[in-house]
Design a protein around this nucleic acid. Sequence first.
DNA 1: CACACATATGAGTATTAACACATATGAATA
DNA 2: TATTCATATGTGTTAATACTCATATGTGTG
Lengths: 102, 102
Amino acid sequence: MSINTYEYDEVKELSRLFKLLAEPNRLNILCNLGMECRPVSDIISATGLSQTNVSFHLRTLREAGLVRPERRGSFVYYCLPDVKLLSLLEQTKEWIKLRREA
Amino acid sequence: MSINTYEYDEVKELSRLFKLLAEPNRLNILCNLGMECRPVSDIISATGLSQTNVSFHLRTLREAGLVRPERRGSFVYYCLPDVKLLSLLEQTKEWIKLRREA
DNA sequence: CACACATATGAGTATTAACACATATGAATA
DNA sequence: TATTCATATGTGTTAATACTCATATGTGTG
């Protein structure tokens, strides 16, 4: 007897995504990338994080397919491959804001 | 010089929410609650988790305002106070599915 | 090829959080 | 009030992961 309308595997996959988004520095990198491609050096100066740390988070995001690297000369540019994710983040932010006011 | 269109505080708040959703058992509890109010005992049997563990996760969700407890006799029913969250979860699941197929 | 710059990786450390166990609280009923 | 059922909480352990330091890889240029 179960109240499940969700497959547990689906839930696990969903939670895997949320875990990626749950680290503030990593999420900050994602949010600030927006739909523009930026070299790592830009991300470093924008976030104020160490080079190593940015690289560390970019690897995680890259391996999950949430950002895509693109080499241009000696620089590596990173971009979001999908607008939809940003829109989901935006909606969630809106929800938080409404909830706070309520 | 920053590429930020997001306030960092906003990002941190967003990440706090994602952290709550990132634990698979906790997310499972949330998803399966749906918009119905259910006693803890139901959640325990539906998830197969220990009583202590369910209580532990419910506390986290409760303190974050993601679920609301309601005592009815010796039972405590839990409900989601807001449909919008479920809809966000649903959209995110859809996004994952589309992405997997692409 | 040597050197400088941009980025990535491996190892070690420290913090966090999920979970179990034991126990406490609270409600109902005898 | 004693007992039982439903749920909550405190403490300790363990596993995961964010971060740093040192170093490696890769690319362009003299």
